[in-house]
Design a protein around this nucleic acid. Structure first.
Lengths: 234, 234
DNA sequence: TCAAAAGTGTTCAACGTACACCCATGA
DNA sequence: TCATGGGTGTACGTTGAACACTTTTGA
């Protein structure tokens, strides 16, 4: 009951950071610098301070450990088994972040020892962090099915092959590129630029950019144009 | 960082209980029996014990305050503003429950002072509990769009008008009953019984029951037959 | 007999899916 | 010149949406 004294339980945050590099989905991990479990791979974690909200804590902790700030962060789930942390009773509130790898490349590699791993080849992580990652992958699938959050993973301008690779990676499928581009363009949310990306091919692929105004207005109607429930892993 | 000492933050649970009575969606509330905020309406809450998981705590707290056990409970979100609890720094991990009101009616009214309120007419609640309820309503919409969890709200046998009322209530729309019943029956998941419910009308409506085997098998493919993204409130 | 809710079918437009070839370019 | 990836169109079946009348029966 609320009027009894609260037992002591520590409150931590762990951040699951997804990135997209133009062709693959990646996950950001750090090597733990202290005992226990020193040198094992881990998510970015830390304790919530007494005078900060848990949302604020997630941003602070991510920035401390990776230098990343201003990224899209959303609460995922709170993990609270009794023995999940081998050290002391700790619950962990997890957040996931979506970023465009290229945009933050320099910030990251300069001072921090974080590394990108392909989402389908994650090493063994400390505690229950692998479970957290699995849940985050599923949540991303759900979220992306109904919300255009995934544009957070893309640079300002991007090509159709890039955005399709992103969806292919998130849902672990291969969409038909003819149907995919038709559906995507039919939203009217993409503006074609007079400029090509020549990185990916000799012919080059046209860049597109988000029509921000329409994007705000139509936040709702847009998706599930792309994804049907068949694509979700239950 | 993980190696610093954790500050003291209390960890509480709050449960948002949705019920369906055959025609309306309801929310279960209790009147707080202690200060501060004595006698104000509130969700069912309590502290997590040091030696129990947060999932276990949610079940225990719900049972303590309402007598309900064995109900569908799912974690919703963790609320963690600094001043959300006016008493001491407390984060609240919220869970939502789905129950068939009739099934638990006796359990509830006997010993507990909990009351059902229509979801569209909730009183002012303590702390940030109204916000929690709003989030739970949205989550239920999302969840029900892709998962058949809503059968948790129905009795063993139910009529087509009842299940449609439920969807109408969750999405705050009025589905066309011809289209609705065709879609629902096309899943092949409902078994028509040779028995009618005469409560709702003179003619009576046939009872249906879930084909449990098929239900297990097809957990995934089923929904979004009913709901399209247009129905979601963003 | 009538009021009230249950139950049922058809038509049309929109959408999803499958599928194959040409284009532009740099090496 | 050729290998590589980019870009486009059509045809068909399925699905979603709009729509109105008949049935049953208790009061």
């Amino acid at each position: 009951m609320r009027n009894k004294k609260a037992p002591h339980i520590s409150v931590a945050i762990d951040c699951i950071v997804f990135g997209f590099d133009g062709s693959d989905m990646k996950l950001l991990l750090i090597q733990r610098g202290f005992d226990p479990e020193r040198n094992k791979w881990s998510l970015m974690g830390g304790y919530v301070d007494e005078d900060e909200s848990v949302d604020a804590a997630s941003g602070r902790i991510l920035e401390n450990l990776t230098g990343l700030s201003g990224v899209y962060l959303e609460q995922l789930h709170t993990f609270g088994s009794v023995k999940r942390d081998t050290n002391e009773r700790t619950i962990s509130i997890t957040y996931f972040a979506l970023i465009d790898i290229a945009k933050y490349k320099q910030q990251l590699s300069a001072d921090y020892h974080a590394e990108w791993f392909p989402v389908n080849n994650i090493p063994k992580l400390i505690f229950d962090h692998n479970e957290m990652v699995e849940m985050a992958k599923k949540r991303l699938q759900y979220k992306a099915a109904l919300h255009p959050v995934v544009f957070e993973l893309l640079p300002e301008k991007f090509t159709l092959p890039q955005i399709q690779s992103m969806y292919d990676a998130i849902y672990e499928v291969n969409f038909d590129k003819r149907n995919f581009s038709r559906k995507l363009l039919s939203t009217g949310l993409l503006i074609k630029l007079n400029e090509k990306d020549k990185m990916g091919s000799k012919k080059g692929a046209f860049y597109y950019t988000l029509d921000k105004d329409k994007y705000e207005e139509n936040l709702f109607k847009i998706f599930s144009l792309i994804i049907t429930p068949d694509h979700l892993q239950f």
